[in-house]
Design a protein around this nucleic acid. Sequence first.
DNA 1: CGTTCATTGTGAGTATAGGTAACAATGAGC
DNA 2: GCTCATTGTTACCTATACTCACAATGAACG
Lengths: 149, 149
Amino acid sequence: MTTPDPDGLLAEQLLRLTRRVHRIQKRHLERHDLGVTPAQSRLLRTLAHYASPPRMADLAERLEVVPRAVTTLVDGLETNGKVRRVPDPANRRVTRIELTDEGRTTLRELRGARRSAAEEILAPLTEKERQVLGVLLNTLIEGDGGQRC
Amino acid sequence: MTTPDPDGLLAEQLLRLTRRVHRIQKRHLERHDLGVTPAQSRLLRTLAHYASPPRMADLAERLEVVPRAVTTLVDGLETNGKVRRVPDPANRRVTRIELTDEGRTTLRELRGARRSAAEEILAPLTEKERQVLGVLLNTLIEGDGGQRC
DNA sequence: CGTTCATTGTGAGTATAGGTAACAATGAGC
DNA sequence: GCTCATTGTTACCTATACTCACAATGAACG
């Protein structure tokens, strides 16, 4: 009742914050000069979560993008020597994506950039507030993916 | 202590949520078929906040983008008849941006799209949680713009 | 076996959003 | 009047992600 459109406002804040997060992330990445774009950084981190090299399609699903988008990202990372495409002997349609040693090194350095970016973004929040925010964001993320359709 | 990199995780969640917000917003905009891109929609809404027509530079500052980006957005909106460039008689360098009647109509219809998009995004949260999230997001937004540098 | 259909990744092209650099027109300060 | 800052824009580039079409491959089934 305080505002006429509180939810729209919330979405607005979210989008605004988003732009800032992107900017800050990009700046910190450039500062560390790892030769990796934000989206590539995300793919690298995702890659680290797998026990064995995932397929392109696996990555696409995990990143919530169409497979074609993964191709471009892997192209960039591969030319920079961060990842390697390896054919799957069992199914010749699939190509699996492996982190190279250089990719693993980059990933470690990336963690610093990521941490400092997060710190800059979250500076205004106390530890407890961050926890609350984390829970809320998680609810939003989980809520959609699991229940719809 | 539960996770090794809680802040980085938070930024990750934020970015992930962001992508979803963009997708949902775009879908709802397309469904209402108002001939307006998400960024143009944002400019229109921003425009409505001014008592008198703002300058391009004002919009750029408010939207947190470079002036050049505003030019493109206004170009699109002007060719679609949603806004009008009017020269400022007092300072011939500045052009002020006015909402047209059609722009105002679009803005009203836009509110529906915006509301339904917000509802879809925020569905997993209770009313109280939304309030908490609003406060946290506001802290993050205010905290950066006002205090740094 | 072969025919058909689904899966997998990618080439080609498009859209959106933003950024930099250079510039012309204008205004302001000395 | 000369210099410098402001304002918007022209021209160009980047990043991200999309659709569509397609070739290669595998799977199902008569």
